[in-house]
Design a protein around this nucleic acid. Structure first.
Lengths: 122, 122
DNA sequence: CCAACCTTGACACAGTCATGCTAAAGTTGG
DNA sequence: CCAACTTTAGCATGACTGTGTCAAGGTTGG
C-alpha cells in the first residue's frame, strides 16, 4: 500500500497542493487520511487526478462543471428537471413561417390581452 | 400567432430584457425575429422562460449550469468523458483499513521510488 | 527530540457570471 | 412622419471561481 502525501501527489499529478485541497473541498476527489490527519493519495487517486486534468484541458471546462455533473448524477430530480427543460428545446418553433409573420402583430390589442391573461393566470 | 416583443416578454416572464438577451447569447433559448430584427417571443418561449426561472430557483443552480448541461447533451464525447471519470468515483477505496494504515508509510523510500517511476512513465 | 512536512484559516487577486445602464442607430405602427 | 420601442456594443459592478501565499499550530519519523 503506497500512498503519497499532498506535496508528493501534487508533484506527480501536476496540480498544486492548494488545488488538491480545493478539489477535495468541492467534492470531486477525497484522499484517505493518516491517523494524524494527513491526506494520503493512493495510485488510484493519482490516476484520477491526472485524468481530471486531461478532462478539463481537452474540453476546456472547469472544476465547477465537473462538480455540477457530479451533482446531477447524485440528485436525480435535478437531472430530470434539466432534462425535461432541455427536451422542449430541439423544437425550433417550426410551422410559423413568413405568411404567418406577415400579420404577426396585426393588433397589439390581442397581445396585450394575452399579456393580461397570463398575468392573472400567474 | 401572438408574439411579444422583448420588453413585454420580460414583463410576463420575470426576466429583465437584458437577461433575455443574455439567455439567448449563451444558447439556452432563442426567439424568432421580425423582418426588422426584433425578437419575438411566442407562448411556447414564454412558458420555457418561466420554467427556466423555477428550475434555477428550485435547485439553486445558475444559467451557466444549464448551459453546461446543454453542452453535455450536444457533445457526446464530453458527456462520455465526464461519465467515465465520475464512474471511477463511487469506489470509496475499500479494503484499505486500519491494519493496513498502521504501516501506511513504513518507508518513504518505497514511495519516493514509485514517485520516480511514475515520473519516468510520464 | 526536531527538521521537514501537513492542517486549517485567512487575505489577495485576476477572471468569469449575472446584471444594470447608457449610447448610437434602426424598426414599428398609428 | 414620428413617438415609442428594439438592436448591438460597451462600461460597470457585486459575487463567486480558481489560485497563490502566509501564519499558527499539529504530525511524522529518523
Amino acid at each position: 500500500m503506497d500512498a503519497l502525501t499532498i506535496n508528493e501527489a501534487a508533484e506527480t499529478t501536476g496540480w498544486s497542493p492548494r488545488m488538491l485541497r480545493y478539489i477535495e473541498r468541492i467534492g470531486l476527489l477525497e484522499a484517505q487520511r493518516s491517523s494524524g490527519g494527513y491526506r494520503l493519495y493512493g495510485p488510484e487517486q493519482l490516476q484520477r487526478l491526472r485524468t481530471l486534468r486531461e478532462l478539463l484541458a481537452q474540453f476546456d471546462i472547469g472544476l465547477g462543471d465537473v462538480g455540477f455533473a457530479l451533482r446531477q448524477r447524485r440528485e436525480q430530480p435535478l437531472s430530470d428537471a434539466i432534462e425535461t427543460w432541455l427536451e422542449a428545446e430541439p423544437a425550433k418553433p417550426e410551422g410559423v413561417e413568413s405568411s404567418d409573420w406577415l400579420r404577426w402583430e396585426q393588433q397589439k390589442h390581442q397581445r396585450l390581452l394575452n399579456l393580461v391573461m397570463e398575468k392573472n393566470a400567474a
